[in-house]
Write a protein that binds this DNA or RNA. Structure first.
Lengths: 191, 191, 191, 191
DNA sequence: CATGAATGAGAATTCATTCAT
DNA sequence: CATGAATGAATTCTCATTCAT
């Protein structure tokens, strides 16, 4: 019973992810979502109050999943570079293994799909990384610049890989991931 | 007559830019574009075959403007770093001075607003930068990695600044621009 | 058990009255009725065959209550004017004391909310008043006109007071009730 | 051109009148209105901003028509009784000759179909009658009671006739109209 | 009897596009 | 070329009713 409940909810989230990441928010009618989730159109509204709520919920869910993956194995006592490296590879691993999710997040980042309040809420999940950067700055390992800049050079580029990969123009090999991390690290470190 | 022609066409492009960058592609009805351009709805179809064509045209136009700005003062004989620096600051200067255009481009980058073919077409405008990178690689100044990686770390982060700025969370000072360039350069250089 | 039965039925009727008199028939979803009655949506259909039946039943119930109140203390042997006066004040007393019921009846009177057959059925409850009028006509105290006219001037105006009161434009004082009765009586009497 | 404009607008108003007076506001979908007006569904929104606006407009239009009819031939210098009589017969004449309009008004009177603001607006059309009553009170011909009471006994009963007639239970003959006026006059006069 | 999730037939409204003037 | 009313398909969302548990 509870399972069935959860089942339909996640079927809906999953269908939404599929469709939005492939065709974009506004080219994804509720009817299609319902169909793909094998559910009646009206049923959606038993789980989400409207389309915005559905997408917001999906965003929060994925952001949560992503952040969990990102901090897998991370401990606060780690040396800064080791921590940054772990998180960075966790992130790219998640994005490479979950292209739909990655694409969805990427779409949300640069658009007004997701409610402002929800996006803000999701931002707080990154706090451990911000803390780590701050420690790195204290240890003079990481450049003493705004976290926005650090984010722009250490995290944001990942979105580009995914967006490009979507269009089959590019495949990110293991070796390239290594290079990519080195570039990210060079950008943000003082050394 | 030709002038009037051009006038209406650019009025339409300008109106589209205004509305799309503020409200997104799908929240911008043709009727509003027409109104803002002070033109009848039907008239749009004398200049563009449909909404997609209108947006594609706008994208090409802006991308062209942006690339022109980016290569302002650039000459092929320049030393690599000097060239990269010039282009980078040109780019950020354009984006800071033209927030609507920057926002529009940013929206197009990670979505399916613009036709795939058109986006590809626009990519070729960057050829001089790709050439410069290639020269930099030959001179062993720039990392020997895929241009996608170079792009991801040297150009793509600019979009983040704009997207964030749009939401009033952040203002990019002159000093930060300096830091930012240093980070970009550190990412892509071998030194 | 029977009590519980009756309990739920009247809880449903009461909830319907509340909601319909406040928001109108078509702005009152079954789900809300169920919620207010503290009952599951499906349960309604154990007591009423559909929404129409529910509202029809409510109408009959209230009309019954209203008529009972109207004839409270009335005896067939009463002098005509006394009888008319008693009934008239009973009616207005009921409507003033039960604004929700009054409003509901008023809404039903001029619309297609209630089935035609049910409305006809309810009309018969007024028979004693019709008889009284007839006696009054025999005694040449009451105008020799169609009972429809008598109704229009002696009973129908009450609905107006309620409808107006609903909109807070008007409060019917004791003195006004007196005047109002005098007006009603003047309309229908021969004297 | 202008005619066509007006034509469609009035065709829509007329269709709305037909359908709402027959089936009620909430049983009258926009699609049916469009069909009856021989117009596409979307066209409605070129003339009215939404369903509420359409009905409000219709109400104002009819109320206007009704009031014009009511004051036909009326002059402020008329003796009070003559004036009241003229207006009263004008009103009933209008309602008898225009049953759909009468029914529509009657439905609006006791429900929340029409916006409160619009109803208030329409009320002002009756001002000449209120003025006449006031004069009658000054001359001590008309009872010194709230205009609400006067309205309830002199105007409101007309709605009942129409509502009843709608259900084919009753036909209002010329003679009955005479009686009816006498009743109304008896109700409101001091004599 | 009671539940409440599921259904799916509409309902109001929007909007890109056409075409007669 | 310019106009803008007209179109009608598509979209989001509601709600009376059913039925498996």
């Amino acid at each position: 019973m509870t399972d069935k409940n959860t089942d339909k909810r996640s079927a809906l989230l999953s269908a939404t992810l599929d469709l939005v990441s492939n065709h974009g928010f506004h080219n994804t009618p509720m009817a299609k979502i319902a169909k793909l989730a094998d559910v009646s159109a009206g049923t959606i509204y038993n789980y989400f109050s409207n389309k915005q709520d559905l997408v917001d919920s999906l965003y929060l869910h994925i952001k949560d999943e992503f952040t969990n993956a990102a901090f897998q194995g991370y401990e606060e006592e780690m040396p800064v570079k080791e921590g940054v490296k772990l998180i960075w590879f966790n992130m790219i691993e998640y994005k490479v293994s979950n292209p739909k999710q990655a694409n969805f997040l990427s779409q949300c980042e640069n658009s007004q799909i997701v409610s402002a309040s929800v996006r803000e809420q999701a931002l707080q999940h990154l706090q451990p990384l911000l803390d780590l950067w701050e420690r790195g700055q204290a240890e003079e390992i990481i450049r003493d610049v705004s976290p926005y800049l650090l984010y722009a050079y250490a995290v944001y580029p990942l979105s580009f890989f995914v967006a490009v990969k979507k269009r089959d123009e590019f495949h990110l090999t293991q070796e390239m991931q290594q290079h990519s991390f080195e570039m990210a690290w060079s950008a943000i470190t003082t050394k």
